[in-house]
Design a protein around this nucleic acid. Sequence first.
DNA 1: ATAATTTGACCAGC
DNA 2: GCTGGTCAAATTAT
Length: 301
Amino acid sequence: MENIPSDSDLRNLVRELSQGKEMVMQLQNHLNLQSSSSHESREFLLQRIMYSYDQALSMLTRNAPEPPLLPESPLPVAGSPLSDDSDQDFTDQASRKRKASARWTRKVRVGPEVGIEGQLDDGYGWRKYGQKDILGAKHPRGYYRCTFRHAHGCLATKQVQKSDEDPTIFEITYRRKHTCNRALNNPSASIPVPGPECEDPNPLTQNLPFNIKTSLSPLNTFSSSSPINNRDVFLGNYYPNPTNDLNGDYGELIPNLGHSESELTPIIAAMTNSATLDTDFPFGQSGFGPGFDFGHPGHYP
DNA sequence: ATAATTTGACCAGC
DNA sequence: GCTGGTCAAATTAT
């Protein structure tokens, strides 16, 4: 029995392949500009490319309802010996001590074309907990923490800031790795976990490296861990305005433009990792191995 | 009613 | 003292 791909399958397929292509180009750049790329970032791109192939193949074969696990978290970057102090920087309730914690930054461009929510969604649920005007920066910085901070004590956070010059570029800085998925998304444990997860249940988005949609929602608040259709939310209502410079907020996102999907799709502009520092990055010290369950479907609250 | 965001205040580090 | 990061009450969305 042949499985005729549905319309959305085809779109996903095209998107997946486009992403793969995009990443191949990025990898090419990385290889050309060795100086600005780290081994990890190249490795990461390779993983992502592989993932895209896997995804595309499974879409074609229709055999795998669940996408393969993939490394989707941000990459730490070379240079810093990732010491493991994961637990010591600031802790929740106790002290708000701000110590050097691992961070790794990525730049993401949001622009028309290609891939979509995928590109923006890093697969985790984020909840905004603050916003600050940063000295010297035109745009405020948004602070997000893992949705399951309380539920699972996941201390992962990220900061999202729009680039001064290029409004289509967002700099996303991650801090601390997610502990929620790791703990709960054990592939060997067939149970889907009773509680909420850090992962995006949506197989289409769970592997994506970024989660801008959740980060950029000042105008219209929608749940970052939204159980609802990410794509509708994103495609339908939010589109970063590349030209206008509204102000503040990630707010330069314009709601309801009613663009076509292709126009609304943000893409990863750069996977430039400018990771700074030590610790905690999602891959753990061992990098992402088979054991690391990235894209495993999790649950949303 | 519950959950997420907004926003000013608070705190720690420089 | 200034700045960045977080908290938490109030507000808004679902």
